[in-house]
Write a protein that binds this DNA or RNA. Sequence first.
DNA 1: CGTGGAACTATTGTATACAATATTGTGTCC
DNA 2: GGACACAATATTGTATACAATAGTTCCACG
Lengths: 238, 238
Amino acid sequence: MNSPDTTPLRSLARLAASDRVAEALSLAIHEHRLTPGTKLGEDDIGEVYGVSRTIVRAALQRLAHIQLVEIHRNRGAYVAQPSQQEAREVFEARELLEPRTAHMAATRATAADIATLRRHISEEHAAMAGGDRGRALHLSGLFHKEIARIAGQETIGGFIATLIARSSLIIALYWRRESALCESHAHHALIEAIAASDGTSAEALMRSHLVDLHTALDLRQTTAPARTLKQALINPGT
Amino acid sequence: MNSPDTTPLRSLARLAASDRVAEALSLAIHEHRLTPGTKLGEDDIGEVYGVSRTIVRAALQRLAHIQLVEIHRNRGAYVAQPSQQEAREVFEARELLEPRTAHMAATRATAADIATLRRHISEEHAAMAGGDRGRALHLSGLFHKEIARIAGQETIGGFIATLIARSSLIIALYWRRESALCESHAHHALIEAIAASDGTSAEALMRSHLVDLHTALDLRQTTAPARTLKQALINPGT
DNA sequence: CGTGGAACTATTGTATACAATATTGTGTCC
DNA sequence: GGACACAATATTGTATACAATAGTTCCACG
């Protein structure tokens, strides 16, 4: 009855196969090794990871649910290409959710949480210094997710996670600045506010940080992104 | 090139099989015909709907993603049982998102939108009068989803949809009043505000409506529902 | 009589085979 | 030479078969 679990680390040690694949694909998308519009053939992916299409399909379905990939019936899965309208919505939603989350995180963060955040930043910094912009972007997303986790809002944190994932696609499509130096600076300021338990400042910093990101995107109606070749030609506006 | 699609109604006419199953299960959960903790065996469901386990698994995975069901590795899928903490989070999130959405809906609603909302209400009223409380609850959820749709915020609307789904489970577990008469009244007032394009009122009405729902739940720490799988199974009163 | 463990059963996890569909290539007719 | 129809190919959709795991039962043993 009360026999202790024989494999306490099971959830970490033995991830389900489809989780592994989904995680790998997600990481590749976050790091911009897979770019929007790329076709994700089931056989190809299965061959890469040494699993059957059953697994791949489950992984793709999961990614489709968080809108990292789009699945077209009988036509396959593609890395999603958020429209400009979707991009606006994603950042509006982030601007609604994340400042509040940052505030909450500031009031709840422990010393260990602060340390984790600092570690994130230093890794991000290192990646940027090493020229691996994709990895830096991924770590930047993890930073935001970590703040949501610290805030202890599981539900809203889940929403934020999907928004961050989509943000990665949006940045791949619509980023217009060359450098993102402001990023690490903004993150650093955020940590200080959180470390000081200054919720109001953290909230304001997060808000301005997101606005900065938003305004660094090129979301003018004129620059329609190149969607799937054929679909773009047949159906221009979506 | 410009050849018209031979099957323009395809997307409506031929829903993917897993979508049908997921929709059916979702409806059953929303209508409280399936209650939290119920085991969802793959073979059983497949037999009911005349599809293979492949389809059922895809459907269950989708429902797991919106947290309507919980999937335990090697142990199967069960209708989810949100904890009291999760319940609080869900309603806090709704109180954050929906008032704003109602405001937006009020500024954008067309005559057709208003008509749709009124139709929803009358159906809900009819279901309640007919004693079908489950169906009334489902329609109540649809009402909220419709408002999000009218607001034109696809992204936030998606979040709200999942929150509404989870709310259905929460109500099944923690509802403490016998009647929900306030419901239809609150919805009626909301429609009037939206029809009058009175965003501020709509926002306030939505907020108080959600607070009413929230406070009508019994979320005291003491009444722990049968959380663990084993306890749920031992308890024969499924 | 209670406990521990090994076989058993039932259910899920995964791979593969087959069916259905979309896309591509080819030939014929105008 | 171009457009259409039809065949060929490739990819996805679904069902089924097999493998692996968790839960259960039953028996031996203390």
